Amino acid sequence: MDTDSFDQIYENLLPLVYRFVRLRVPTHDVEDVTAEILTKVWCALPGFKGNASLKSWALRIAYHQIADYYRMNRGKGLPVISLSHDLMNSPVAEDQSELLTTLLSISETLAKMSEPQVAVIQLRLIEGFSAAEVSQTLGITQQAVDSLLYRAKKSFCKHYRMDHAGGKR
């Protein structure tokens, strides 16, 4: 594989990895965990065989690094991850208040879902990865990705309706 410079790899992967980490790690550790992941990606790059896209391969590393983060911090009382606090404290123009309300609702709903469900929604629906790429990233079959996405959508709708639509099913 023709390896790019660290700067090229960093610029290509940083936004994706940062978003992935941001939904899973407390705010005060997001930058450190992201940096650790990008360092691991760079160090592991000579072993990258190209069987998957670079992005899905990097997110597979990220997925494992985040699991390591929680194993190392077990028992330290880490908070549930929610974007609500950050969104509520960010400067927003008045004409964007409806967007902010929607983002807060989505953030609160995602915080109630399982990690695999959040991962499949983020990768398939937000990042636009194919089922094959998500399969490689999460280490599950494509059929399992499709099934997980179906269950994640149902779970999202159920939680969202219960919290934001008067509890109607």
Results as ranks from 00 to 15, higher is better:
Asp2Thr: 15
Ser5Pro: 02
Gln8Cys: 08
Gln8Arg: 14
Gln8Thr: 15
Ile9Gly: 01
Tyr10Ile: 08
Leu14Val: 05
Leu14Ala: 03
Arg19Ala: 11
Phe20Pro: 03
Arg24Tyr: 03
His28Lys: 14
Trp42Asp: 07
Trp42His: 10
Cys43Asp: 14
Cys43Ser: 13
Cys43Gly: 02
Leu45Phe: 10
Pro46Lys: 07
Lys49Cys: 10
Ala52Leu: 10
Trp57Asp: 00
Trp57Gly: 05
Leu59Ala: 06
His64Phe: 12
Asp68Cys: 03
Arg74Trp: 11
Arg74Gly: 00
Gly75Glu: 09
Pro79Lys: 10
Leu83Trp: 06
Leu83Thr: 02
His85Leu: 11
Asp86His: 09
Asn89Leu: 12
Ser90Trp: 08
Ser90Val: 01
Asp95Arg: 12
Gln96His: 11
Gln96Ile: 01
Ser97His: 13
Ser97Pro: 03
Leu103Pro: 04
Leu104Tyr: 03
Ser105Gln: 15
Ser105Arg: 14
Met113Trp: 01
Met113Ile: 06
Glu115Pro: 00
Glu115Thr: 14
Pro116Ser: 09
Ala119Tyr: 03
Gln122Phe: 13
Gln122Asp: 08
Arg124Ala: 06
Arg124Asn: 01
Ser130Asn: 03
Glu133Arg: 02
Gln136Ile: 01
Thr137Glu: 05
Gly139Asn: 07
Ile140Lys: 06
Gln143Met: 03
Ser147Ala: 12
Ser147Phe: 08
Tyr150Val: 11
Arg151Cys: 02
Arg151Thr: 09
Cys157Ala: 13
Arg161Ser: 11
Met162Lys: 15
Gly167Gln: 04
